[in-house]
Every structure is written in C-alpha cells, then in structure tokens.
C-alpha cells in the first residue's frame, strides 16, 4: 500500500508531476478495480480515476494529512463517485430492483485478467481472503452498503432485517475485517 502518501501529496502540492506518476503506479490499479467492481464499465471507471486524480492535482488542498491516509481518502472518493454514477445510471434505466443489485454484487470475473489476478500484492490477497472469510450475510450487507451504495433502510427492506441489525452487521463486519487483516499480517 502507499507508505509515503504524505510525502507524495506534499510533492503534488509543489507541482511535481513525477509524484502523480508514482501515485498512479501504486494506487491506479486499486482505484480502478474498485470503481470497476461498482460500475462494471471500463470507460466509466477510467473516467472516475481520471477525475479523482485530476482533482487532486488541480486542487491538492482538498486533501490534508489531517483527513487520514491519502490512499484511504482517495479510495473513499473513488467509491463515492462511482456510487453516484451507479445511482444515476439506475435512475435513468429505472432499475433499482434489489435482486438485480444483489446479483451484480458478484464481481465480473470474465472481465478480470488472469495474470493480474496472480498474487501481485500480499496485502490485497490477504484482504480478499479476509473479506471472503466473513459470514455470507455480513458479506452481502457490506457489499450492498459499500459497493452498491444502498442506505441502511434500503438494505433493511431488501433483506428483511431490522435497521439496527443492518447497522450493527456493517459495523461488526468492518471491525472483523480489520481484526482478520491484523491477524494475517
């Protein structure tokens, strides 16, 4: 992961274009993969990554180390912009059927590159394992919340769970993920 995010950001603030290249080399694939998982569309995912990195270059002060780690901040930005696009697309096509949402939360394996799926990064591999090791219901709720942008009440409606259960499962899922990852490390 990006160990020197603060340094790279400082160099971007000073207009050093090589820093943008370094950032792309470390994070480009991760940001793109996240956006693709949400949108399942290469051109839209490219646009999201371009938009986010271009915003950081043009307005680097939008971030500050006080806002946490640079990569976490960028991942959230990419996730939120991708979700906005996903919702906008759903609105236009009038398809907000929850069944379909659940169906689409499964990654499009046909579009992945087998070579790229190799264990390029131990940490990412550990994360994927950690996510898969969560109980199915917790995975589904995290997927609906994080990758499809559903609100707690929408998830409650879709799954028949109470609002409180949805919230607690999201929290517990996130905490469990963090714990599993720290054990794996």
């Amino acid at each position: 992961m990006l160990e020197n995010g603060e340094q790279i950001w400082t160099r971007i603030v000073h207009g050093e274009s090589a820093a943008l290249g370094e950032l792309y080399d470390v994070l480009g694939g991760i940001l793109y993969s996240l956006s693709f998982r949400i949108l399942n569309d290469r051109w839209e995912s490219e646009e999201v990554v371009q938009d986010v990195l271009s915003s950081l270059w043009r307005k680097p002060d939008a971030y500050s180390p006080k806002k946490g780690k640079l990569h976490s901040w960028l991942l959230t930005l990419v996730r939120n912009r991708s979700i906005d696009r996903y919702r906008s697309r759903s609105r236009r096509k009038d398809i907000v059927e929850i069944d379909e949402v659940i169906l689409h939360t499964k990654p499009d394996l046909g579009a992945t590159n087998a070579g790229d799926e190799a264990e390029r990064s131990d940490e990412r591999t550990a994360l994927k394992k950690a996510f898969k090791s969560l109980p199915d219901d917790q995975q589904t709720i995290l997927e609906l919340s994080y990758f499809k942008g559903l609100s707690h009440s929408e998830i409650a409606d879709a799954t028949g769970l109470s609002l409180g259960t949805v919230k607690s499962r999201i929290r517990l899922g996130v905490e469990k993920l963090r714990r599993i990852l720290s054990d794996l490390r």
């Binding site: 993969s33 693709f36 990569h71 991942l75 959230t76 394996l109 579009a111 992945t112 940490e123 996510f131």
Partner: peptide, 12 residues
C-alpha cells in the same frame, strides 16, 4: 476501515 473493503475488489 472502508478502504480495506475497497481494496478487496478483484484486480482488473
């Protein structure tokens, strides 16, 4: 924490 979920996406 949410970044961890994001990074669990399959690589493309």
């Amino acid at each position: 924490d949410l970044g961890l979920i994001g990074q669990s996406s399959p690589e493309v």
